[in-house]
């Protein structure tokens, strides 16, 4: 069993402390700035376009199970569903993992209810397609073509089917916004989608969309943790360069970082 070494425990505690400190300072009313993320700003534009064309929206929460990435994707889905409910636009959510299906159904139902339009919610628009990768991709492409969706949102963890989804959407002329922490799929989304949210920007999405102080504070804390990590890396590189990689200090540090 792998357990944390002292160094890893200290680093994690430091990251958690920075994030929680920033959350608390945000709760106390401190103004926090985050830069514009074009892909997230385009979500409203995509929903507006679908509304104008009178065609539905498709939101795919990715192919991962019920984990952090999918929960983040469903948070974004909740935002999209609320905006769509406001404008009387249909949202179709195909899911791949059966465990995600009841959560997705509840999220979308509550989004419609929050906008005071519970009657617009159609449970058949939340569909489990298949737990096999390419069967799911085929199903989503089929839905895109049959329902003639006007906007596609791909948020979550994707694998090789990302280009199939993106290109199929391009061929029907849909506006497409994608966001994934899967770095291998980013190039495919970049060439086939109108807007792509890269890697860690995906985890900033809920903070960006809601502007909720706790989430903004967490996002700023995340950035400061990265700065702390960068300082740690620079110190390590300098020590390793000055003392040599075989020195006892560097060897001990490397062993510590390797974990228990």
């Amino acid at each position: 069993m792998q357990h944390a070494s002292l160094t890893i425990a200290i680093l994690e505690a430091l990251a958690a402390f920075i994030i929680l400190y920033k959350i608390l300072s945000a709760k106390r009313g401190r103004e926090l700035f985050i830069r514009r993320i074009p892909g997230l700003a385009a979500i409203d534009e995509a929903i507006g376009r679908a509304t104008e064309m009178g065609r539905p929206i498709l939101f795919s929460p990715g192919l991962a199970g019920l984990d952090v990435t999918t929960l983040q994707a469903l948070s974004i889905a909740a935002y999209v569903a609320r905006m769509a409910a406001r404008y009387n636009t249909r949202v179709i959510v195909p899911v791949m993992d059966p465990a995600v299906y009841p959560v997705a159904e509840e999220v979308i139902r509550e989004a419609y209810a929050a906008e005071g339009r519970p009657e617009l919610f159609n449970p058949d628009d939340i569909r489990f397609l298949s737990d096999r990768q390419f069967a799911y991709a085929s199903g989503v492409v089929g839905i895109m073509n049959r329902e003639k969706v006007a906007a596609n949102f791909f948020f979550g963890y994707f694998y090789a089917e990302s280009l199939i989804l993106g290109e199929a959407g391009t061929q029907i002329g849909a506006i497409q916004v994608a966001g994934t922490p899967a770095t291998t799929q980013l190039p495919f989304f970049i060439v086939s989608c109108d807007y792509t949210i890269l890697a860690e920007e995906f985890y900033a999405a809920t903070a960006y969309l809601s502007r909720e102080p706790i989430l903004l504070g967490s996002l700023v804390g995340q950035d400061w943790s990265k700065v702390a990590l960068a300082v740690f890396i620079v110190v390590g590189v300098l020590l390793s360069t000055l003392l040599g990689p075989q020195s006892p200090v560097i060897t001990a540090l490397t062993a510590q970082l390797g974990g228990g």
Binding site: A15, S218, Q222
Partner: peptide
Amino acid sequence: GIMMGVIAVSLRIWLSLERGRFFEQEL
């Protein structure tokens, strides 16, 4: 960057600080 994001989101979910319709908070 991604792992920092995962740590932040996981911390928020663990401490139930994540806001959204899951947690009956207005967006």
